[in-house]
Design a protein around this nucleic acid. Structure first.
Lengths: 192, 192
DNA sequence: TAAAAACGTTGACATTTGTCAAGAGTTTTT
DNA sequence: AAAAACTCTTGACAAATGTCAACGTTTTTA
């Protein structure tokens, strides 16, 4: 369980054993069953969260009750709500386990302290932020420039494992189209 | 000219004078006239760029010749193409001055060296990345959950000065709708 | 194992949006 | 000052997408 996190850190950077152990000493383990929530709209998010196993989604619900998926986070990825964490404001999002999931949590203050104390860890975290930013940019570019069909193909191309792991209507939600439209796009594509 | 940058840094962090001067010693000043390019598609972007005065836009051009605006960067903001800079791959984007513009450039290697050498500067830069990420997330959420009209209102609300500074069709491009649709949305809105 | 919930598909129809073309007003360039 | 380029609007029409409802299938839950 902690092994997953250790392996992740060791793959990403050469952190001394003792630093890694210090980080782990602040880790809180949380197990979620399918459909359980890690965060609910209106609550303030106060952690950094690493998915050791399983799979979660981050989504909002609008006035009409429609869900909009901001993110999928499988094992070896981080999740959370940066906005709520930073500003200490109620979150607009829900984070829900799509499968039974094990999460490693580190409290905001502990996390900040660790970043200050361990520069290599700080670098690692900033690298992740950097990658997340690039991913966001790519998604924005897709959203303003591509057709629905291209958005879907692009999604499957970039996230093949996720595409195979979630129901189709969640992909539709992620790319911002209705499930019916996605269904039609797919059936038309196979005719070709 | 350099004063703008100095003021920016001093407003954001309390950096010793000598550190600031070291940073400035690597600065390259570039002046752009309206419609001149800071970066052209296909070139590799090798700098970090701070806009001291003026205004630029980052956009791509698709197969049909349609432009898609990724970003507006007025004075006191950073610009560039992080993807091209990081991976040293040809950029998909153009960065063009919308007004006569003064840019402060720092070469990638110099910039990285400065970040390593001056932790406060590193923190500042990571804070900017953090804010950029939050802005991206907000734009993504808008793009998957809002109607065109709401996207427009949201844009004007969040970036009132930019909305007043650029032609309408560029706002349309930024939010991912056609200029005609935006024109109609606006005219219908005023009827209410 | 029976009931309930979730999932994907399809049809019918309404709504939104894009496309193309024209024109009037404005700004920029020469 | 005239010409050119740009900007926004509008109409007519086509294309894309959303909505609602129904249905069969699969998966989950009790």
């Amino acid at each position: 369980m902690l092994e997953v996190f250790k392996k992740y850190i060791n793959d990403k950077t050469s952190l001394p054993e003792e630093d890694l152990n210090e980080i782990l000493s602040y880790a809180i383990i949380k197990k979620l069953r399918r459909r359980q929530f890690l965060l609910q709209e209106g609550d303030i998010w106060r952690y950094n969260a690493f998915i050791c196993s399983g799979f979660v989604r981050t989504y909002s619900v609008d006035d009409k009750g429609t869900e909009h998926i901001m993110n999928f986070s499988p094992e070896n990825y981080w999740t959370g709500d940066r906005e709520s964490l930073t500003n200490e404001t109620p979150s607009k999002f829900n984070i829900e386990a799509l499968e039974n999931t094990e999460v490693l949590l580190i409290k905001k203050q502990d996390f900040e302290m660790l970043c200050k104390k361990i520069p290599l860890f700080n670098n690692l975290i900033n690298n992740i932020l950097h990658k997340s930013f690039l991913t966001s940019q790519s998604r924005i570019h897709s959203s303003i420039s591509q057709s629905s069909e291209d958005k879907y193909n692009n999604f499957v191309l970039k996230f093949p494992t996720i595409a195979n792991r979630v129901p189709q209507h969640m992909i539709a939600s992620y790319i911002g189209i209705s499930p019916e439209t996605l269904s039609r796009i797919r059936s038309q594509a196979t005719k070709k």
